[in-house]
Design a binder for these strands. Structure first.
Length: 236
RNA sequence: AAAGAAACGUGG
């Protein structure tokens, strides 16, 4: 099992979902344990085979395997991608007493956010005991996704100024996207400016993409073009 | 015990 879960993981990350599935199927009914099932679940999730992932999650429950928090977090990612609020809620119900755990809690925040349940996402977020950059970014992204740009920006500032958590590239993608949808042009330009100068995060092509989107939506086409011209990498 | 786990812009 030690070997099988590693092999499933290795094939999956190397991009061969078929090989991972072949190995898993071979051991599924004999020696596969929870870790193997979770590795296969993660493999489906990483390859965006969310329907198959959900089916596998339900199958493992029928088989009588008891999912742990890692399994739940993985399954919640799948629910988030599918907008599968019912199954997500069932998972929350089953793991309710542990939703202050940073990994499980963050997965719940993301699931509720992607299912459009911001109030529930925020309630879980507030209860997470040791919030890290993943948790903060998930919540900022949740506001951004649901069109609450001002709240996303506000939370981002709280993260940096009060919680003193260092934002990373993903955080900036989320906050810039929030600015773009809320029409917060000057605020977005300022974030883009300080991300490298203050926070030491070099803008990637995605960040330039966010800025072009932000300026373009605001009708500031000349500035958008200049942004593209200033890219150190090849625009896609 | 160990192997499996959470956040990722725009357009489509």
């Amino acid at each position: 099992d030690f070997a099988n879960s590693s092999i499933i993981n290795m094939y999956s990350k190397a991009g061969s979902l078929d090989e991972a599935r072949r190995i898993f199927t071979e051991f599924k009914s004999t020696t596969a344990n929870l870790v193997c099932w979770t590795a296969m679940l993660a493999a489906y999730a990483q390859h965006e085979e969310n329907e198959q992932a959900l089916q596998l999650y339900r199958e493992m429950n029928l088989e009588g395997l008891k999912p742990d928090d890692i399994t739940f977090a993985t399954a919640l990612t799948v629910c988030a991608s599918l907008g599968e609020l019912c199954e997500g809620r069932r998972i929350h119900q089953r793991a309710k007493c542990r939703d202050s755990d940073v990994v499980l809690g963050t997965a719940l925040v993301d699931m509720y956010s992607k299912c459009g349940r911001l109030a529930e996402a925020k309630a879980v977020f507030d209860g997470i005991l040791e919030k890290n950059v993943f948790s903060w970014t998930a919540m900022v992204g949740g506001y951004a996704h649901n069109g609450h740009g001002a709240e996303a920006v506000e939370l981002f500032k709280e993260m940096v100024n009060s919680a003193k958590i260092a934002p990373n590239q993903v955080t900036f993608t989320s906050v810039l996207s929030a600015c773009s949808h809320a029409g917060l042009v000057e605020e977005g330009k300022e974030f883009f400016n300080v991300m490298s100068t203050v926070h030491g995060v070099e803008p990637s092509a995605e960040h330039f993409g966010c800025m072009v989107d932000l300026l373009g939506r605001a009708g500031r086409l000349e500035e958008a073009e200049n942004m593209i011209r200033s890219m150190p990498m090849r625009p896609d």
